[in-house]
Amino acid sequence: MSNAKSYIESVKDTIQRRDPNQTEFQEAVFTVLDTLEPVLDAHPEYVKANLLARLVEPERAIQFRVPWQSDDGQFHVNRGFRVQFNSAIGPYKGGLRLHPSVNLDVVKFLGFEQILKNSLTGLPIGGAKGGSDFDPKGKSDSEVMRFCQSFMTELQRHIGPDLDVPAGDIGVGGREIGFLFGAYKRLNGYQNGVLTGKGLTFGGSLARTEATGFGLLYYTHAMLKALGDTLTNKKIKISGAGNVATYAIQKATEYGATVITCSDFDGYVYDPNGIDYQVVKQIKEVERGRIKEYAQRLRRRNIMKALFGILIQIMILHYRARPKMKSVRIRRN
């Protein structure tokens, strides 16, 4: 076994011994470490400096209590997290996720990935991630506001425009960022660089909403170009029908590709003539509905429902766990 290889194995062993239950974190870290062997072969000084042991250990992992009151007067307690993983190249940066699946393992997994992702952008931002096991689904605006205010009352002592700049993620959109920003401002004064994903009236950026979906297609375009190919006339299957998928469909269509499927947790649609992103946008963004309504809406234009969706030409988005979906296939007569 090469020196680099045995060093990587020893770092993995330490993680496994220290945090045997953090399986998501382990999977993410091990996948990355396995690809770094040639770099360590070329840089024995990294092994000597025990660099990987430092890379896989967060600079700081904060866990805190988030007490809040629901509309019926009951008291609730959720868990808040902020893992400030690595600030070697810039202030900590990474989203906040509100979802029942959030725990330290998941936040460490996402925070570790964020270090390398942020570095790849070429911009001076370090890696972090945070969130809570609070589930915004089914909560009133007032409940979400009270939760966000309580969450920020603690988080504010750990963040700042040159220190740590959180953003949105699953369960944290424009509404939540607004409440979080308001709570931060009340305690610390107006510093608009403390959060990103803000509304356009208080420091938000144009094209932020489109950024992930557009960026995904710019990346795909660059890859195809390097392989001597283009997006024109490609058939694309997308899993997802939220913010990223909507703008990915738009950009793919602009590139001359045909997106034939998209999906949410409730089902998927297959439209061989190309998914109409404006209909998706109307259903998901304006009406906050389910993607299966796409089939119902276009059936009025002579589209029939059948059983299966097929064909993957370019796979764009992947989910770790595939929810069981009801098949909704549509076909033009």
Partner: peptide, 14 residues
Amino acid sequence: AANAGGVAVSALEM
């Protein structure tokens, strides 16, 4: 790599 566009524009917002 593929979904870094979100955080990239976040950094541009900063």
